[in-house]
């Protein structure tokens, strides 16, 4: 473990994390924080991540809050989050402005159609990777029905998310409690 970073270093590190990842930046966060900067061990990263995945909100944003807070209190969190979000927000707005300006051109329309189709596939793969550890034999038996229920309620029946969460989350947590050894 190297010594805790100051705010400028935190900002710079999360700036590079924000700019390096496409369609999710967690792998880059791990590489930067654990391997390149040595601010946390792999175990610490995993624990931080598991906390941040349990809490609501964009996972990587939560990770930056925790890492920032550890070394610089709330201003450290602010430095980390603004480093993470600042550049991507500017870039995505520039891309969107280009889309509005040139989106009607046939080549741009085709490119956007291809991008959209590929992006849907990437999200499906994310879901598959998230599901893998839950569907292994010996793990939580009830994972599959809960997954299907959440998918059907929100994806097929288009139920409002707050109601779906209010129903499914307590149910699933209660089942997880009972099924755990």
């Amino acid at each position: 473990m190297s010594r805790p970073p100051n705010r400028a270093t935190l900002f710079a590190a999360f700036l590079s994390i924000g700019l390096s990842g496409f369609g999710g930046v967690l792998p880059f966060a791990r590489r930067t924080l654990v391997e390149r900067r040595g601010w946390m061990t792999a175990e610490e990263f995993n624990e931080t991540l598991s906390l941040c995945q349990t809490l609501p909100g964009p996972n990587i944003v939560n990770v930056s809050v925790v890492v920032g807070a550890r070394s610089g209190g709330w201003t450290g969190s602010l430095a980390a989050v603004s480093g993470l979000m600042g550049a991507p927000v500017v870039i995505v707005l520039a891309l969107a402005a280009l889309y509005d300006r040139f989106g009607a051109l046939p080549a741009a329309r085709g490119a956007i159609a291809g991008l959209g189709a590929a992006a849907a596939g990437l999200v499906a793969a994310t879901a598959a990777r998230m599901a893998e550890p839950l569907l292994k034999p010996g793990h939580l038996v009830a994972a599959a029905p809960v997954m299907l229920a959440a998918f059907a309620a929100v994806g097929l029946m288009r139920a409002p998310l707050p109601y779906a969460m209010l129903l499914l989350a307590p149910l699933s947590i209660a089942m997880a409690r009972r099924l755990r050894p």
Binding site: T54, M147, L148, A149, A150, G155, S172
Partner: peptide, 12 residues
């Protein structure tokens, strides 16, 4: 408990 709900939502 939350993990499978999240998977279902991402699938949606």
């Amino acid at each position: 408990g939350l993990a499978p709900v999240a998977v279902g939502l991402v699938l949606a």
